[in-house]
Design a protein around this nucleic acid. Structure first.
Length: 498
RNA sequence: GGCCCCAUGGUCAAGCGGCCUAAGACACCGCCCUUUCACGGCGGUAACCCGGGUUCGAAUCCCGGUGGGGUCACCA
């Protein structure tokens, strides 16, 4: 059995979006499952659209997702180079072969002229196809054009009859009538190959066994198969994975919110969650499993089980999965990923051991209550700042009477006396006070929560108290007591008659 | 428009001729747990695009329609 070799071949024109990420993931899963090689190749033959940052950005996203490659532009490999812009000599050599064998020919038609013809055809409602006028150009005429300094493009002599069949692992056999194809360009007049040509040459020379790519390439495949045949290279297997659509069924774009992997990272999603979600878009393990470890996905994955229809991506499910991982991943790991988010909000600076210990407690207290790291950072604010405002509704409910201040004073006294300041001791002391006062637990717990956090909801009160520590709690209780006193004093003044 | 692909709840999806009066998950709605909010647990609403065949029997096979998507460059 031939060794499985697959590739992900993005063009560095922008950031890696989730459609590309999923294509990369499926390739990677297949390679790992089959003990094959996963290759990264940059299709940077469009000199105009290449972006310097894009190449590094795509690799960074891939790395963040945990999709490592065995050969690629940064690490080399036996089939390099892996950047198409560095392989121009290879394409020229292969093109020359075709030309000499009479399987391709020079075309001197100007792009403007061709565009005009296309436009005309479109107006007439006819399919715009190159008419092959340069196919049988007389040598004399050719020399003349050459002498005039016209740089020709190279076109393939495509078959006019018969059909080309794509054997697709996901879709079965797809037939294209050759008469619907034309003599397409394989080398531009500037000596740079077109996508279809470079792709076939590289896939052949790099001995790619399975071409797994997005469905948008399905209609390119007959052209590529024609090139394979003319070049005399064996065909790889093909698998065209369905597209990912936006919620309105249109192609994903920036107006649909986050679509780039990088954006998901900065929005506080974990790579495990994104990978898991992407794997579930268009593929299913066949049973009820949803949350799966990467190893599990690898062992279960199969191309035959990839669905045929496009999937609409739903951020709600991704968010749910993210919350699952936030809860289930080892605490240290989550803390590690949360730290940059806390730093960005100015909660902490350089991380020393004490900070780390404190942050770990904070994360442990709130991670089950949030869905993303960004949300977590927002929810954690009062653990790092003591000048927070009090929730308005909460104030009306718990801070509107003089008695509320007395109640908090009693609570403050108890907390001041509690030693050690740990969960069982603090809780026992507070519960005892509740009993002494003959009130319900909530009657003391809610005002206290508002006093120390400014919020009416959140982790268990005693967890908050213990994380904050005694000194901080006492300070915050005093601040709340002052606040209530000022507030109620205002209320106590005689009402003004109109 | 030509060519190509696709079609199970709002979304992801199981199903590959009888086990389907159609799983599961997200979302949504109840209830329980609880000092609050989450987490968790339990339950509920909700789907085989339409029309013809084939078959004893069709969500599953075939044909047509409709709908959605992709693609038609010296872009990738």
């Amino acid at each position: 059995m031939k060794k499985v070799r697959v590739r992900f071949a993005p063009s560095p024109t922008g950031s890696l979006h989730i459609g590309g990420a999923r294509t990369a993931l499926f390739n990677w899963l297949f390679a790992r499952k089959k003990n094959g090689a996963f290759i990264l190749r940059l299709e940077d033959t469009d000199l105009e659209r290449n972006l310097q940052e894009a190449e590094e950005g795509i690799m960074a996203s891939l790395r963040w997702l945990g999709l490592d490659w065995d050969e690629g532009p940064d690490k080399g490999g036996p089939y390099g180079p892996y950047r198409q812009s560095e392989r121009l000599a290879v394409y020229r050599r292969e093109a020359e072969r075709l030309l000499r064998a009479g399987l391709a020919y020079h075309c001197y038609c100007s792009p403007e002229e061709l565009a005009r013809q296309r436009e005309e055809a479109r107006k007439k409602g006819v399919v715009p196809r190159y008419d092959g006028r340069c196919r049988e150009l007389e040598e004399e005429k050719r020399a003349q054009l050459e002498k005039a300094g016209i740089r020709p493009a190279l076109r393939i002599k495509a078959p006019r009859e018969g059909a080309t069949v794509v054997k697709d692992l996901i879709r079965g056999e797809v037939t294209f009538e050759n008469k619907t194809l034309d003599d397409f360009v394989i080398m531009k007049s500037n000596g740079v190959p077109t996508y279809n040509f470079a792709c076939v040459v590289d896939d052949s020379l790099m001995e790619i066994s399975h071409v797994i790519r997005a469905e948008e390439h399905l209609s390119n495949t007959p052209k590529q198969i024609i090139i394979y045949k003319l070049l005399g290279y064996p065909l790889p297997s093909f698998a065209h994975v369905p597209m990912i659509l936006a919620p309105d069924r249109s192609k994903l774009s920036k107006r649909h919110g986050a679509t780039a992997v990088e954006e998901f990272r900065t929005d506080g999603y974990l790579p495990e969650a994104l990978v898991n979600y992407l794997a579930l878009l268009g593929w299913s393990p066949g049973d009820e499993r949803e949350k799966m470890r990467l190893e599990e996905i690898i062992s279960l994955f199969s191309l035959e089980e990839v669905s045929k229809h496009a999937a609409i991506y739903d951020i709600k499910k991704l968010t749910w999965l993210n919350a699952q991982y936030l809860n289930d991943l080892p605490l240290e790991r989550v803390v590690n990923d949360a730290i940059p988010f806390f730093q960005a909000r100015g909660y902490i600076g350089e991380v020393d051991p004490q900070t780390c210990t404190y942050v770990t407690k904070v994360v442990a207290a709130i991670r089950s209550r949030v869905h993303t790291l960004a949300e977590m950072a927002e929810a954690a604010e009062y653990f790092f700042k003591d000048n927070f405002p009090y929730d308005e509704k909460g104030v009306r409910k718990y801070f509107s009477t003089v008695q509320a201040a007395d109640l908090l004073s009693r609570g403050r006294e108890i907390l001041a006396r509690t030693e050690p300041f740990d969960l069982p001791t603090v809780e026992a002391a507070y519960r005892q006070l509740i009993e002494e006062l003959g009130i319900s637990g909530g009657a003391l717990i809610h005002p206290t929560r508002l006093a120390v956090s400014g919020k009416t909801m959140g982790p268990g009160l005693f967890d908050i108290l213990v994380v904050l520590g005694k000194e901080e709690c006492l300070k915050r209780m005093e601040r709340a007591i002052d606040y209530i006193k000022k507030r109620t004093a205002g209320l106590a003044s005689p009402p003004v008659r109109p």
